[in-house]
Computed example of a mutant assay.
Amino acid sequence: MTRERIDEWALLRGLCFLAVVMQHCIGEYIYRSDIVPADSIMLGMVYHFTRFGTLTFVFLAGAILFYQYGDGRSYRSALVRRIGDIYVPFVLWTLIYWIVVQLADHHSLLGPGTWQSILTQLFAPTNGYHLWFVIMIFQFYLLFPLFRWLFRQFSSRCLEGRTESRQQQIVIGTLIVLAILYGWLMWLCYYVLPGWSLQGIWQVLLEHRTSEFPFYFFYFILGGVCGSAIQRWRDMVIRLLPWSTLVFLIMYIWLGYDLLRHSTEAVNLNVSTYLKPTTFVIVISHMLLIYGLALLLSRQNHVLVRFLKWCGRYSFGGYLSHALILAGVAYITRPLVLTGMHLPFTLLSFAIVAPSAILLTSLISRLPGGHWLTGSAGKKSRKRKSTPGSTVLQDTPLR
């Protein structure tokens, strides 16, 4: 199935990928014992400037799914294809990270607890610390028919037979109510739930809430609104651009102050976890801001736009592989004394890791069977060449 090319989504994927890589590069350097306060503060400021990355991927997943399948087209075959394009690469990269960690720690690959260790990584990955996102986002793929049914019920009961302006008022009002409910959920998650002590499966669910879809549902629904009415969404984003910029700047200053206020000898980035009300506000405002910027950039054809589209095209494989490349860089930098140089080395590591991960994905995707490691990047490139007038939109959040 083909659809009109949505150029800004490719740019957004590229921007989100770069933001995620920058966050992980910051995490590699900001907790080192020889870091000076100036570097800690600067890295904290850059960190808040890139918080939109992961959660905007959730938004894009909802946008692409509803754009492609929101009109009732069969989703079963698409889900089977997504298992091969998303879950299989996740499993293979989980094995790769497990092997690397075992070898680095000088452990046997075939010990008595091997299979239990691998299974644990498939459900709660720690070796590939970034792979939790694949587990979380795949829950939305599995539950998409339910979200689509809810959208249909809402549309038939609340929107049909009303004027366009009234429909927009109802949708915006509903989103505001959902945002308030989601903000309340974030308040519970950050301030209340950590103090709970439950038993059995409920304690497991509580401890792993950062990987569970209910705690990210608003971004997916917002993406569904975008994908269901793309032109209206574009118009709204452009109109809101001055306000989203203002809110982002206010929240950026506030979160920076909050980070310093709750940090002692070292900056604690966990103060700005995704599941926090203030983080929710800055991410939404930043998401609307960068969407508007992506719309403006998509009309250009200079080298920056082409680079972002390149990153967006291979962002899923780049996401899966970048932590391994970063580990290789860290293997060289960790023995070094970098006092007063942590900010430059973070930026240097980012400049190495991000393009290297995309280039590696691009090369692997061209090998026979390479899509099992990179997702549908190679297949999408071939389809685009065969149908130059249109784009086959894959419902992969990182691509």
Rank of each mutant, 00 (worst) to 15 (best):
P214N: 09
S362E: 10
V237M: 14
L55R: 12
F52G: 00
I30V: 12
T387P: 00
I41P: 00
R73P: 04
F213K: 03
R32V: 04
N268A: 12
T391H: 12
T120G: 13
N270R: 11
F144T: 03
I96F: 15
N127M: 01
V271W: 04
I172W: 09
Y331T: 12
D395H: 00
S390R: 13
V91E: 07
L11M: 08
L296G: 09
V58L: 08
S33E: 13
T391G: 02
Y67D: 05
S165P: 02
L336H: 02
F215P: 00
Y97T: 07
V88L: 15
R366W: 07
H208T: 15
L15Q: 03
R239S: 12
Q68W: 03
T346C: 09
G27T: 08
V88W: 09
S197Y: 11
P277K: 07
Y257C: 05
I83S: 10
A78D: 10
T333Q: 10
Y331C: 08
L222A: 12
Y314I: 01
S33M: 07
F133K: 02
L295R: 05
A357G: 04
I253C: 15
F52T: 02
V171G: 03
S156T: 14
T114Q: 12
P194E: 07
I99W: 08
I137D: 05
F59M: 13
W233T: 07
L159C: 06
L275R: 03
I118H: 00
